[in-house]
């Protein structure tokens, strides 16, 4: 399997003051790197879901998850392998779009399946929600037109659905 240098952790935490600070503090203190971070409420207001993309070159993933799990407010950690999860990210970008460029930008946005969300005299604000690699490509292709401002959300992810019967899959469990 391909070795990814980034790995996505989906972390269920108690919705309490300072939880994010505890997680960020832990990463800083132990020298782990966060690549991106997204926080959102869950359907149960007692918990929040944090999606952290970690740099597994900075420390072994196992050590990161074990240290993270020691935080009292961390309830559950799921490791989402990019190969077996759906990962999405949203980008908003304000692009320099005077008359002569406007049509090609609109075409690019349509090809990617994005949206024009705001139109100004000489600028366009565009949006795309897609896999992180698509978003990277989109951003790179917009670059030549002149990106005025860009904002990315960081990725969110869920494990892929089972496509075969669970009984037939080989189960590799973690010990201890």
């Amino acid at each position: 399997m391909k070795q990814y240098k980034h790995h996505t952790l989906s972390v269920l935490v108690e919705n309490k003051a300072g939880v994010l600070s505890r997680i960020a503090g832990l990463f800083a203190r132990r020298g782990f790197n966060i690549y991106s971070l997204a926080v959102a409420p869950t359907d149960d207001q007692k918990f929040s879901q944090i999606t952290i993309v970690v740099d597994v070159q900075s420390a072994p993933l196992e050590q990161i998850t074990k240290q993270l799990f020691k935080l009292i407010n961390v309830v559950k950690i799921s490791e989402l392998d990019p190969a077996t999860s759906c990962e999405y990210e949203l980008i908003l970008a304000k692009i320099n779009a005077p008359g002569n460029n406007r049509a090609s930008i609109i075409e690019l946005v349509q090809l990617f399946g994005g949206k024009i969300v705001d139109i100004g005299i000489s600028q366009l604000t565009v949006m795309l929600a897609d896999s992180p690699t698509k978003v990277d490509d989109f951003e790179a292709l917009l670059e030549p037109y002149g990106i005025i401002e860009v904002q990315r959300t960081g990725r969110v992810a869920l494990a892929k659905q089972e496509t075969s019967s669970a009984k037939l899959r080989s189960i590799s469990g973690k010990v201890s």
């Binding site: 072994p60 196992e62 050590q63 074990k66 240290q67 799990f69 020691k70 010990v175 201890s176």
Partner: peptide, 16 residues
């Protein structure tokens, strides 16, 4: 503490 197992030295047999 599970985080101590393998933090410094990889154990052949880790027991939490």
């Amino acid at each position: 503490d599970p985080a101590e197992l393998g933090k410094v030295r990889h154990p052949e047999v880790p027991i939490v």
